[in-house]
């Protein structure tokens, strides 16, 4: 048995080297990590500390998506309440239904301001909400420390998300450019009753109600009982949130190719 082994022995399989080579490797590793092992002592020092900026992140000069880049990490959201227009698009786009629009102070009583409240117990950090946000006020940050002892603390109110925004954490630089919705809000004029609901709830105030002439009453016919106004959508300001369509009581607004 032993002689068979010896016959097939390659020159680099000298038994002494079986011991010497791994010991040399271990010694090299020992010397390398004697000054500083690769371990980052997490609770006491963090990867995002300035002293690691040359090793990881955008500061390392590596292209994003290659190597240990942490700036594209999707962590807790940051919400800028001041620029939020309550358009609901984040809640619409959320695949986990973890975003609730809750009222925050700052709106008028008739038209309350609503901002997203995120339940991190459900969130999958897909980032669709920040991609959908037309104003760029909801973004993903690199903050990752979320552990709590209570389930209720996993629900982040808009104020708490605004606190995250105020810390000015590095924002995720990657924002998906969604294909622009080329459709416009179109009106089916005969159905409209001029109720002003669309203009009232439009987050960007791009809908104005214009007067239309009241038709002359023909003999034998009654003039429709309605307000003689019609919404006109300013396409350049519209964020295509669809709020007007959903609030319209007569379903006379719809998506369609603009003329």
């Amino acid at each position: 048995m032993a002689s068979e082994l010896n016959a097939t022995q390659k020159p680099d399989q000298i038994p002494v080297l079986w011991i010497a080579r791994p010991m040399a490797t271990a010694a090299r590793q020992f010397v390398k990590s004697l000054f500083r092992p690769s371990t980052i002592l997490y609770p006491f020092e963090r990867l995002e500390d300035p002293k690691f900026r040359t090793q990881v992140g955008v500061g390392s000069g590596m292209p994003i998506g290659v190597g240990p880049v942490w700036d594209n990490y999707r962590g807790v959201h940051a919400l800028n309440i001041a620029t939020c227009i309550s358009c609901n698009l984040c809640a619409f786009s959320c695949p986990d239904l973890c975003i609730d629009m809750v009222t925050v102070p700052g709106g008028d009583p008739k038209h309350p301001k609503k901002c997203p409240e995120i339940d991190y117990g459900k969130c999958s950090y897909c980032g669709f909400c920040s991609d959908a946000c037309p104003e760029g006020c909801l973004t993903m940050t690199t903050r990752y420390e979320l552990s709590t002892t209570k389930r209720s603390e996993m629900v982040y109110s808009p104020e708490k998300l605004n606190e995250v925004f105020r810390h000015k954490l590095p924002m995720n630089p990657i924002r998906l450019e969604l294909p622009k919705n080329e459709d416009s809000i179109l009106l089916d004029p005969p159905l409209c009753i001029g109720c002003n609901a669309c203009a009232r709830d439009c987050p960007t105030q791009c809908i104005t109600m214009l007067d239309i002439p009241k038709p002359e009453a023909k003999p034998g016919e009654k003039v429709a009982k309605r307000i003689w106004k019609e919404p006109v959508v300013n396409d350049s300001d519209c964020v295509r949130c669809g709020t007007c369509i959903s609030v319209c009581p007569k379903e006379c607004l719809f998506w369609g190719a603009s003329k």
């Binding site: 590793q29 020992f30 390398k32 990590s33 004697l34 092992p37 371990t39 002592l41």
Partner: peptide, 13 residues
């Protein structure tokens, strides 16, 4: 401690 350094970590600390 020694084994930690050999394995590129720190051991008990």
């Amino acid at each position: 401690k020694l084994l930690g350094r050999f394995m590129d970590r720190r051991g008990a600390m």
